[in-house]
């Protein structure tokens, strides 16, 4: 499990861990039943306070992303899918937000953006169709 901790912005480290684990689950890189590293192992790997990792695991457990098993150990929970959907929406919303702010900056209207989105989607679906690559202007 590869996580990256940054201290450059103000996102608390426990939240960075929570968000990245959710992202890994939503993107399918962590699957239900996968075991999470023990708290002290992850703390040493990331060189962060073990209390911080413990807090991240608690938050992940409360939101149902991971579950503790009686045999000790923390695992990605089986019932992760409906929550993962919400997380997928959140991840996409973030991307869309930055797309929108850049597009508005460049003077595109929402209709133009939607139109462009459809065109690009069509190109991705059938990249061989040259008519779709045409410049709309």
């Amino acid at each position: 499990m590869q996580l990256h901790i940054t201290t450059n912005d103000g996102v608390p480290i426990y939240l960075q861990i929570v968000n990245q684990v959710k992202y890994l689950v939503a993107s399918g890189r962590l699957s239900p039943g996968d075991e999470m590293p023990p708290i002290r192992v992850l703390a040493e790997q990331l060189v962060v306070n073990p209390n911080t990792v413990a807090r991240a695991y608690r938050e992940l457990e409360v939101s149902g992303v991971v579950e503790k098993r009686r045999t000790a150990g923390t695992y990605i929970s089986e019932a992760g899918s409906p929550l993962a959907r919400g997380e997928q929406v959140r991840i996409l919303s973030d991307r869309i937000d930055s797309l929108l702010s850049e597009a508005h900056q460049l003077g595109f209207s929402d209709e133009e953006i939607v139109d462009l989105l459809r065109r690009r989607s069509a190109v991705l679906v059938s990249p061989s169709d040259p008519t779709l690559e045409e410049d709309p202007s």
Binding site: I39, R40, A43, E44, V47, V48, N49, P50, N51
Partner: peptide, 13 residues
């Protein structure tokens, strides 16, 4: 620095 920090993390754990 990294060495010192990792040992401290392990110690806190």
């Amino acid at each position: 620095r990294h060495d010192i920090l990792s040992v401290i993390v392990r110690t806190i754990a």
